[in-house]
Design a protein around this nucleic acid. Structure first.
Lengths: 184, 184
DNA sequence: CATCCATTTCAGAAATTCCTGAAATCCGGG
DNA sequence: CCCGGATTTCAGGAATTTCTGAAATGGATG
C-alpha cells in the first residue's frame, strides 16, 4: 500500500521530469528523496530505482546543481547521504530561482545586448524587443521583491488573492508611490 | 543590421526553446512571428529559417496548440497566414496558462489520487504528499485570482512589489478575512 | 467533379539525449 | 605508502526526439 503509493509518486515525477527541464532519472531520484523520512545513500537509490550507480551519481550531481538536495554524512559511515529539504516552501523558492536562472536570465541578457546593438532604433522589431525586455524586467523585479519576503508573509499575500487589487488601489492613495512616472 | 539582430534573436529563441519545453524549430518560428510587423505564411517561414515545409507545418501546429499564434487569411490569397499576438501581456498570460496546464495540473490530479488512495494515513510520506498538494493549491489559486485581474491592475500590483507585504498586513486589520481558520 | 494549390501525415533518417559498465580518481585509515 | 571502499568520469550503445521528403488529404474554383 505505502509502497504502491510511493511507486506511483516516483513514476509520476519521472514522467513529469522531462516537462520540468530535468530528466526521468533525476525526477525519480528527487521523488524518492522527497518522500524519504531519512537521508539515503546512492546505493539505496540504485536499489529502489534500478538505475546504474553512475546514473544515480550523475542525477545526484544535477540535483545538487539545482540546490534541491543536501549532501550529509552519518557518523561512522564514509558514504554520502542525500536528502531533500523538509521545508516545502524552500523547495519552491529554489525551483523558481533555478528556473529563472536557466530560462529567463539568459534571455534578459540577450535582449539587452540586442537593444544596445540596435542603438535606439524605433522600427517595429526594436520596439518589440524593448517591450519584451521591459516586461521581463517588471516580472523579475516583482519576483525578486517577493523572494525577499519571509514565507509567512508571502503566504499571507498569496491568500489575499484578488483582494490585492483593491488593496493596491486603496493603498496608492494612502502611500504615495515614489516614482509614479515609471508606470507602464 | 536589422537582419543581424533578427538573426541573433531568432537563434537565441531556438537555443532557449529546449529549456522552455518547446523545441528549437518551434522557438525559432515563434521568434520570427514575434518580430514580424505583419502575418507570415508558412513558405515565408521556410525561406527565412531554412526548415522543411513539413517541419514548419508541425511547428505552427504546436504553436497553435499553445495558443501562441493566430491563423488568419489575406483577401485573395488561399494560403494560411500566422501572427503572434501584439499584446505582450497576453503572450505571458498564455505562456503561464499553458505551462500550468502541462506542468502543474497533472501533478495536482495525481497527488489528489494518491491522497485518496492513502485514505487519511498520517505517516511521513502521506504528510509530505498532503503538504505538497496544499502548497500547489495555494499557488494555483493565487494564479487563478491574478489571471482574472485586468492587465492594468495586474501591472499596478506587480509594481507595488515588496510594499504588498505592509499593505496586506494593514489591510488585514481593515478588511477582515472571511476564513481566517484556513490559513497555513 | 476535375484541377490546382496549399496543408497535413507519416515512415524512416538524422540528431540529440540518456544510460551503462569499465576504468580512473579520491580519500581516510592502517 | 598502500589498501579498500566510495565516487566520478567517460566512451559508446540504447532510447528518444526531431526533421525530412514523398505521398495523401483538403477544399476552393471553374
Amino acid at each position: 500500500m505505502r509502497d504502491a503509493i510511493e511507486r506511483e509518486f516516483v513514476l509520476h515525477f519521472g514522467e513529469m521530469g522531462s516537462r520540468w527541464g530535468i530528466n526521468r532519472t533525476v525526477g525519480q531520484i528527487f521523488a524518492v528523496l522527497f518522500l524519504s523520512p531519512e537521508p539515503l545513500c546512492a546505493d539505496a537509490l540504485c536499489d529502489r530505482l534500478g538505475f546504474s550507480r553512475s546514473n544515480v551519481s550523475m542525477g545526484l550531481k544535477e540535483l545538487q546543481a539545482w540546490n534541491l538536495v543536501r549532501l550529509q554524512h552519518l557518523p561512522g559511515d564514509r558514504r554520502d547521504y542525500f536528502s531533500a529539504p523538509q521545508d516545502m516552501w524552500a523547495i519552491v523558492r529554489t525551483l523558481i530561482a533555478e528556473r529563472k536562472k536557466r530560462e529567463i536570465d539568459p534571455t534578459l541578457t540577450k535582449l539587452r545586448e540586442l537593444e544596445f546593438a540596435a542603438d535606439g532604433a524605433d522600427d517595429h522589431q526594436s520596439l518589440r524587443i524593448r517591450d519584451l525586455r521591459e516586461l521581463i524586467e517588471t516580472l523579475t523585479r516583482f519576483y525578486e521583491d517577493m523572494d525577499r519576503i519571509e514565507t509567512e508573509r508571502l503566504i499571507a499575500i498569496l491568500k489575499t488573492g484578488s483582494r490585492l487589487s483593491k488593496l493596491v488601489a486603496a493603498g496608492a492613495r494612502v502611500i504615495p508611490m515614489n516614482k509614479r512616472a515609471e508606470n507602464l
